[in-house]
Write a protein that binds this DNA or RNA. Structure first.
Lengths: 186, 186
DNA sequence: CGCATCGGCTAATGGCATTAGCCTTTCAGC
DNA sequence: GCTGAAAGGCTAATGCCATTAGCCGATGCG
């Protein structure tokens, strides 16, 4: 195994930095090569193509998000766990807006496992609500929709008014927990 | 005014068709020119550049969404209005997933007016809940987050399991209305 | 009838992705 | 220590796309 200057992971790391600093749209092989001090075609020794690099970046973000979610839920249960999960999620997205935007939502086989782990954490966070089977699935979907929707809009700067965003997010969390507490039946 | 073959609106229309059929990533000036039966540079007589075309497309989508929302709320109030709004929103996104994905979330001056109209509709839909000032703002943000999050995930095919999506969405609506009914205070 | 202007065209430039094929460095095993 | 295979970098070449510059015919107002 010859010189180990670059590596697949290093390339992804540089890509992540570009995404953070200049946004997902600025992620080009040319830019990565520039940062690596290498000619563009050299990157193909580490990554199949730009599309794969994007998937790898997305996978890394998914992993970080899973870690955040995992820590948030740890040692908590019920509403507390749910709120901590939502807060952690939002906080991650707010801290790394570009990175969060690089998260690919369309399911990809490469990141299926990480995605399942994340869903598992959400199910765990919902455990206290006594949801079974389909009900748990519906709840996870709603939780995802709420967290992702808020994160995307905040990251995009779509919330323009001056009102406190923490309060808005607290209301969102309130909606989720209160909706889970009383049955959807009318 | 010489021959009126193409027009700004016609270009946007073709762009919309490309987005619908091949996704937002396939929207290139070259592709539009191909459909228009015209050389690529000719498009610059109607549109400043690709970035502007994207904004125009996004504006059109925003307009359609506003119309859908407006019709949904018409003649309804309270929970009924809210549910109709959410259903209409989801239905639009599900009917035109690529188009919905072409919606730019970052606020742009060009579409600010349309955006305000949409927010106005949401506020109207929330009127029955007696929200004032900041509380209304928070509620609109949560509503947006919920609707947008669900729409994005559904459009991306992120909901993979077989469970009925209508039910999931009904739960989301339930969360929103039940969260609005009882005060967020603990 | 003249002419300003609209709306299309060709040519040219430059960025980026991707492929092909070369060359050097390094290390495993003798 | 020597050798050869392969990892990992490079240059050259291709092709797509956006964008700019500058040309030219048609059209409709005066």
């Amino acid at each position: 195994m010859p010189r180990a200057a670059l590596s697949r992971d290093a390339v992804v790391g540089l890509a992540l930095r570009i995404v953070d600093e200049e946004g997902p749209g600025a992620l080009t092989l040319s830019a990565v090569a520039g940062r690596a001090g290498v000619a563009t075609p050299s990157l193909y020794k580490h990554v199949r193509n730009l599309a794969e690099l994007r998937v790898l970046v997305s996978g890394r973000v998914l992993g970080e998000l899973t870690e955040v979610a995992s820590e948030a839920v740890l040692g908590r249960s019920g509403d507390e766990a749910l709120r901590a999960l939502m807060d952690g999620w939002r906080s991650y997205a707010a801290r790394h807006p570009h990175r969060y935007s690089a998260l690919i939502q369309a399911p990809r086989p490469e990141t299926a496992e990480a995605g399942d782990r994340l869903v598992g954490i959400m199910i765990a966070a919902l455990r206290a609500y006594g949801l079974e089977g389909p009900a748990a699935i519906h709840a996870v979907r709603c939780l995802r929709a709420a967290m992702h929707g808020f994160a995307v809009l905040e990251a995009a700067g779509a919330f323009q008014l001056a009102e406190n965003l923490d309060e808005s997010h607290a209301l969102l969390a309130h909606m989720v927990v209160s909706g889970l507490r009383r049955a959807p039946e009318a």
